[in-house]
């Protein structure tokens, strides 16, 4: 029994690996389904804006509140902006946006493709000579790679404003000091370390969600299973890859640990 499960897992990993490569190749090989991609970008980007706005705002405020409380005890309140800036830009912003994206967009992708499988719509595409990878998966990968970084930048800005509100109006710090600290941390290294991650996260979320969706079998129960798996695996992979990317980027950008 155990051996069969391990074999299934290895086989699934192999399928996923090939699926991810085919998905990537789809972005550089014709035909391109531009209209589908724009539709997906609207769903993934514009549709996620409000939730990213709210989550980022409150995370920025909570972080600033925690730091202000702790730093004021040490007489170092003026560093609030700097620490909020570094945390948000390099780590919390990209991960938060990716987690929100996985929850909202990843689950949507998996359930949509899953119901298309169960309703024989994917079979119809194949019968009509349309490659489901090109028509369904590639536009979702591209839209995720484009929209998640955009959402991350917006989310970072909103978090910084949330942090500003707490630092200035609750913790009574100087507005000038807060923004000049933020300006100081907006170096190439910091921005690059944060901006590179969402591209990878977007690709991972789209590949995992599409793969799980297209692997759906077994009716409504199967659809529930594939949607849940898409979100859970995406979240785990975001956290794991974040650690790996952080390690690689810190090394590549010359930070000493």
């Amino acid at each position: 029994m155990g051996t069969i499960k391990i074999k299934e897992l290895i086989s699934d990993l192999q399928d996923f690996y090939l699926f991810s490569i085919r998905g990537f190749l789809g972005t550089i090989k014709q035909p391109f389904y531009f209209k589908d991609m724009v539709e997906q970008m609207d769903y993934a980007g514009a549709g996620s804006f409000l939730i990213v706005f709210l989550v980022s705002l409150f995370i920025g405020m909570a972080l600033s509140l925690q730091l202000s409380a702790e730093l004021s005890r040490l007489g170092l309140k003026m560093y609030t902006g700097k620490i909020v800036g570094i945390s948000i830009i390099r780590e919390i912003g990209p991960v938060t946006a990716a987690l929100v994206f996985a929850g909202r967009v990843g689950s949507g992708m998996a359930s949509e493709l899953g119901s298309m499988i169960l309703g024989h719509q994917v079979d119809s595409l194949r019968v009509f000579g349309v490659d489901p990878m090109k028509k369904l998966v590639t536009p979702r990968i591209l839209s995720s790679i484009i929209m998640l970084p955009a959402l991350t930048i917006i989310g970072d800005a909103i978090s910084l404003f949330g942090g500003y509100y707490i630092a200035v109006f609750v913790s009574h710090q100087s507005s000038t000091v807060y923004w000049s600290s933020i300006r100081d941390v907006l170096t190439f290294e910091n921005v690059f370390a944060g901006a590179a991650k969402p591209f990878i996260f977007g690709y991972l979320i789209a590949c995992i969600s599409c793969y799980m969706g297209l692997s759906t079998k077994g009716g409504a129960k199967g659809l529930r299973r594939s949607t849940t798996s898409a979100v859970v695996i995406s979240i785990v992979m975001i956290i794991v890859s974040d650690f790996i990317l952080t390690r690689v980027l810190l090394y590549a950008l010359g930070f000493s640990v």
Binding site: G119, H120, Q121, D123, S124, R126, V127, F128, G129
Partner: peptide, 21 residues
């Protein structure tokens, strides 16, 4: 899959419950 397109064009299929997009 590419070669099968020619074969599939010989048939017209209506799936269970229509399978409309």
């Amino acid at each position: 899959e590419e070669d099968l397109r020619e074969v599939r064009m010989k048939f017209s299929i209506v799936f269970q419950e229509g399978a409309l997009f």
